[in-house]
Amino acid sequence: MILIHCPYCEQTLPELEFAYAGEAHIARPADPSALSDEEWEKYLFIRANPRGRHNERWRHVHGCGRFFNAVRDTATDNFELTYKAGEPRK
């Protein structure tokens, strides 16, 4: 069971308090109707799925309740860092 640092609580806590929430930095388009089918498909379904460094979202669901971002190595499961939602990609 991994430990995850919540950037809001500023505590490093057991994974059981958290929930994974998919790839990070995929913003919902401001005006979806302006997007072509291909662009919308890309937004909806296409994900990086890298082996290695991955910017992803977690939620401290059984804690402060906040969604935040993390950089995790998908091969080793090691967290490089976590940062608040809304902060630029790291």
């Binding site: 919902r28 669901v61 969604f67 939602a85």
Partner: peptide, 13 residues
């Protein structure tokens, strides 16, 4: 609730 929180916190903060 999780879905609504997600939109609220990350898309329309």
């Amino acid at each position: 609730l999780n879905m609504m929180e997600d939109y609220l916190q990350t898309e329309w903060p």
